[in-house]
Write a protein that binds this DNA or RNA. Structure first.
Lengths: 252, 252
DNA sequence: ACGATACATGCAGAAACGTGCAAGAACAGG
DNA sequence: CCTGTTCTTGCACGTTTCTGCATGTATCGT
């Protein structure tokens, strides 16, 4: 049995039965109580359960799947998402792109933040269904499966009917000269259409995107308000971007 | 054994068993653990799996979720969904409503069925993202959280731009006199708009809906092609519906 | 207050890991 | 047919991580 698998098992057990007794689980899985305790300690440290004498209880239910799913997102994306989520003003309107980093943003939106989220990603929409305060507006169109977002003429047209305070875009390449790029022309067009409908546009760029470029240009630097990244602020490329006048919001 | 072949094998194993233990696979295939580790590292880099100590787990918790929720879907809904999915002609276009029964239909669509699915539910859309053949079209609009579907003026307008061979609708009430009903006026209007865009409309009605009525009328019996239900075909209400000329497709 | 149980910590062996390296296969170009 | 290059694969090495046990401490129920 894999360690990570065991962790999953514990979370499942917690969700199903509402509690965990360390001793029982250890016997059930045929491992030492020490390992169970260690796992529970780790889970509790991540906020995924509440440690109690003899075992563990679920953290507040909302927190559980929030944090559990949060857990699957790489650390860098989580940090970027947290900074991005903090940019959303209470009562404001946010256009949220698709992609895993944007998904992390959706999950990072505080549960008590009342706002309107506009998205062309069914995945993002589904993730925000259980947000208690967020108003949701879905942009329809043909779904591009590889990126799981609506693109194409219908989607662009739908985008033109909305306006927002803030647009958060994910891209696959962030390069001083090439600008912001992505791998698909339709997606690039869609991202442009979204950015055009918001007062401010910020780019979500986990560190591995920095300094790379893809086939299609999304936007030039002039059109974006800033870049949110977990890359080292003294990284050479990041410094170059700053020199170009790009506002860089560090995430860590 | 080719490297790509090995990669396929790993993905298949992951899908079938839900986990990979590097050591076991290495022994099974007669290759070194190093190669397995390298493969897993590559797959993880492509986001196709999640690397953990000792092996790997499926990338998206969705996979686990999928199986888990699939399991919790009551037997009745699964049966209804299977019959409904069989109505979709190869190459045809399906308008699929939201709701848990419709979700079961989405999951029941054969993996080798090429078809176009139009839906106003981000949940349905997300569930169909990994369908290898289905073309997806999303109807946008304001999301009604309690039912998790797009409704309202924008959604109805979007619906009017499409046409389909078949529409599968979920309802909350199926009653001989009251007809097909649901609890929300906006939703009822949306369902009407969807039904109007398809040549045939079938109703998904697990047995507990039969004989009940809700506040808002969706459609009269004349506008539907048939009813798919797992209720006893000799049930009094079902017999009544048949007497009214409703085609009843039994599911069991 | 006391025994029993659960706990945190340190430790050691085992397992898994990443990396560098070299042998071999596949392949393109001459 | 030969040669140089690239890619893959397995092995060796040092490092990190996991796990169970032992120890001493904290907490619980009575």
């Amino acid at each position: 049995m894999l360690a990570a698998e065991r962790r999953e098992h514990l979370l499942g057990l917690l969700a199903r039965e509402g509690k965990i007794v360390a001793k029982d689980v250890a016997a059930e899985l045929g491992i030492s109580e020490d390992s169970v305790r260690r796992d529970l300690r780790d889970l509790a440290a991540d906020g995924l359960c509440q440690r109690v004498y003899g075992g563990a209880l679920p953290a507040s239910p909302a927190v559980v799947d929030y944090a559990a799913r949060q857990g699957v997102a790489p650390d860098g994306k989580r940090k970027v998402a947290a900074v991005a989520a903090a940019l959303v003003p209470p009562g404001g309107t946010l256009i949220l792109d698709g992609g895993t980093t944007a998904l992390a943003v959706a999950r990072a939106l505080p549960q008590d933040l009342a706002c309107t989220v506009i998205t062309h990603s069914p995945t993002i929409a589904a993730a925000l269904l259980d947000h208690p305060q967020a108003e949701l507006f879905l942009l329809g169109g043909r779904i591009f499966k590889h990126s799981a977002v609506a693109c194409g003429a219908a989607a662009v047209e739908a985008a033109q009917q909305v306006s927002a305070d803030l647009c958060l875009l994910g891209v696959t390449g962030v390069h001083p000269e090439a600008g912001l790029t992505t791998a698909d022309a339709e997606e690039a067009a869609m991202k442009r259409a979204l950015a055009a409908r918001a007062a401010d546009t910020y780019i979500l760029a986990s560190s591995e995107k920095i300094g790379t470029a893809s086939r299609f240009r999304v936007l030039p630097w002039e059109k974006v308000s800033g870049l949110i990244t977990d890359a080292d602020p003294h990284d050479a490329v990041v410094e170059q971007l700053k020199a170009l006048g790009v506002e860089v919001l560090p995430a860590d």
